[in-house]
Amino acid sequence: MMMKRWLLAIAAMMASATLAVANDWGMGDANSKIPPSSIFSPVSTPASDISTLAFFVLAITGAIFLIVGGLIVYSIVRFRARADDDGREPPQVYGSNPIEFAWTTVPIIIVFVLILITARTIYTVQAAARPPGAIAVRVIGHQWWWEFQYPELGIVTANELHVPLSDPKNPTPTFLVLESADVAHSFWVPRLAGKTDVIPNHKNTMWIDPHQAGTFLGQCAEFCGTEHAMMLLRVIVEPRGDFQKWAAAEKQAPVQDASVARGRALFESTACVSCHTIRGTQATGTFGPDLTHLMSRETLGAGVAMNTPEHLKIWVHDPEEMKPGALMPAMNLEQKDLDGLVAYLATLK
């Protein structure tokens, strides 16, 4: 009877846990096409320098683990009290200075080597000179999304950083200047570089030179409030030509499509404009992401959902459904207006 009640309770708990699984808005499928963001599969110099150093450190610490762990296991097996023990106390050994000296000196030597090799990598990564062909990007962390500005190219975008492939012979690395609009964040794309904090009132810099094209996932790594978990980012590495094509398209103001004029009028006459910018319109807000080329982005809400018109409708209607705590308010539009508005947004290619 008791047993049955317990089983029922467990079954009920498991059922409610399954129900509690929220929609992943298509992100699961999209993510599985991208390899996991392992720090040991680097595709950029800072990450590979770190990975090389990490393997060296793992080898040393692994060897220490085997030796010391082995000594512990040996001593508990070899010196365990036996069943036929005579009950006499073992010989009391109070210590030995030569032995103490040995196990002090050897670790000091190991530590010395580690310090030198660590310092070398610190300087090669942090003090790298900036070559003339480098791309400059200003990264601004917001609760809970990323703003990317390309001051030399006149581009502003969000959450998806496009950078050119860097050819080792003719490197075109990307140098990032990191700033925050509110609280502390941290910029982290494991396969490209270690993380660098994004701190208000404090400019930081970092650089990447990806030598493999593709999409690399990252996310905010410093706790920054309610939606810290969904402050995702992706870096899209493209061959030079594709990057230039993308940059040229981003620079254009969006094409005015007469068929969605009503949606555009709605956008310009509601609260949207106080937070968002769409170049060539009256919308010049800077609190939220720049929407000029919204549809050129793969995801919505800093990576919380795939960017489709259906998801856009849900998002505009009430962002809480996808990202509880997001700072954008629910727009409370009537269905007709919502359709019109999203139809307009969908033209922002």
């Binding site: 720090i39 990450a47 320098d49 770190i50 150093l53 990490a54 450190v57 793992l58 610490t61 580690l114 660590t118 990598t121 610190i122 990564v125 941290s186 982290w188 494991p190 570089a193 270690g194 993380k195 660098t196 790594a221 410093e222 706790f223």
Partner: peptide
Amino acid sequence: IMLGVAPFDWQLTD
């Protein structure tokens, strides 16, 4: 020790 190796820590911290 791994976390003390500053560059390794850039990956591992947080």
